[in-house]
Simulated scan of single mutants.
Amino acid sequence: MTLALVCMSHSPLLEVTTPPEEIQKDVDAAFAVARKFVEDFDPELVVSFAPDHYNGFFYELMPPFCVGYEAVGVGDYGSEEGPLNVPTAVAKDLAQAIIDADLDTAISLKMEIDHGAVQPLEVLFGSIAAKPVIPIFINSVAPPFASMRRVRQLGTAVGNYLKTLDKRVLLIGSGGLSHDPPVPQIATATPEQKATLLNGRHPTAAARNERQQRVIETAAAFAKGKANIMDLNPEWDRQLLDILASGELEKLDTWTAAEMAASAGNSAHEVRTWVAAYNALRAAGEYTVTSEYYRPIPEFIAGFGVTTAVVK
């Protein structure tokens, strides 16, 4: 058993906008470091912690956690469509190990995943089917949320199972740091929005395009300082990155959903995927962060980070 980790921000705007050249080069360089790290590690299995943005999971039934026995990309924002290479037998054993650790998780025999889970696989491997992948959904968009302590415990349970395997396993945590994109909130949604949040699966091309265009236009306005969304919070992002690098992950147990949203935006809850991934890594032993990139990027509506880590 050997575990390694890549955590990275994602943004739907990576696929559909062209930021200033200097920013694009900066992000590409960070991705290149992560790709080289993964190439050298040569994983035999990938376990991906990722959110969803009302493309595969809806308020009709919104679990805090879900393990995919099979999975398919929905192709939003130009991301890759189609099936992932999920080792179903291993995914079943992993789900049972999580439940045996007294953590309730849902399971899906056909998980639908969006850019939040797909982008890291595209960036690191070039394709969503290049490696055996077990996707683990962590609700990071739709209140109420599992506590950070519970997310940490989920990561530990996953890591405890993975360290029993005779495999090189790459952990991925995919989520923005501080960011507040124009995602409807159930408490303030219009009747039409509520219907979509309840079950907006498989929208028409026109409906998907309208939704995506709203985000693209907001990003353009945000980059000019004219959008009515919360600013990025580099100080909050740095605090999180420092705690993750320190290995003192229990410090995050006191972070509440309300405080996180107020400080870093409604979609800052996606850092739960990083917390789970780092705790899974720590289950195998003390770790070292081998690379860290961070930059607040208004063009992507994201505090944008990429980190890699290995067990010492």
Rank of each mutant, 00 (worst) to 15 (best):
L124I: 01
L124G: 03
G126Y: 08
I128T: 08
I128R: 11
I128Y: 11
A129V: 06
K131Y: 01
V133F: 02
V133I: 02
P135R: 08
P135S: 00
P135L: 00
I136A: 09
I136G: 02
F137R: 04
I138K: 03
N139S: 00
V141F: 13
V141D: 07
P143L: 01
F145N: 03
F145K: 06
A146Y: 10
A146S: 14
S147F: 05
S147N: 09
S147Q: 13
M148P: 02
M148K: 12
R149C: 03
R150C: 02
R150Q: 15
R150N: 14
V151P: 04
R152M: 08
Q153F: 07
Q153V: 04
L154P: 04
L154N: 05
T156I: 13
A157S: 13
V158M: 08
V158T: 10
V158S: 07
G159D: 11
N160T: 09
Y161M: 07
Y161D: 07
L162Q: 04
K163S: 05
L165R: 15
D166H: 13
D166E: 15
R168Q: 03
L170H: 00
L171M: 01
I172Y: 09
G173I: 03
G175C: 02
G176Y: 06
S178Y: 05
H179P: 04
H179E: 05
P181K: 11
P182K: 04
P182Y: 11
V183C: 03
P184T: 03
P184D: 10
Q185N: 12
I186N: 11
I186T: 03
T188K: 13
A189M: 08
A189L: 06
T190Y: 02
E192A: 11
Q193F: 10
K194L: 13
K194D: 04
T196G: 07
L197R: 10
T204D: 13
A205N: 13
A206P: 08
N209H: 15
N209F: 14
R211W: 12
Q212C: 00
Q212N: 14
Q213V: 00
R214K: 13
R214D: 12
V215K: 13
T218I: 00
A221K: 13
A221T: 06
K224H: 13
G225C: 07
G225H: 13
G225D: 10
K226S: 12
K226E: 15
A227V: 00
N228C: 01
I229Y: 10
I229R: 05
I229V: 05
D231Y: 05
L232G: 02
N233T: 02
N233R: 02
P234I: 05
P234T: 03
E235G: 00
E235C: 06
D237Q: 11
R238Q: 14
R238T: 07
L240Y: 12
L240N: 06
L241K: 07
D242N: 12
I243D: 06
I243M: 09
I243Q: 10
I243Y: 10
L244T: 02
A245I: 00
S246G: 08
G247N: 06
L249K: 11
K251T: 04
K251Y: 12
L252D: 03
L252I: 04
L252S: 09
T254N: 13
T256M: 05
A257P: 03
A258Q: 15
A261P: 02
A261S: 14
A262G: 00
A264C: 00
A264S: 03
G265H: 05
N266Q: 15
N266A: 10
N266P: 08
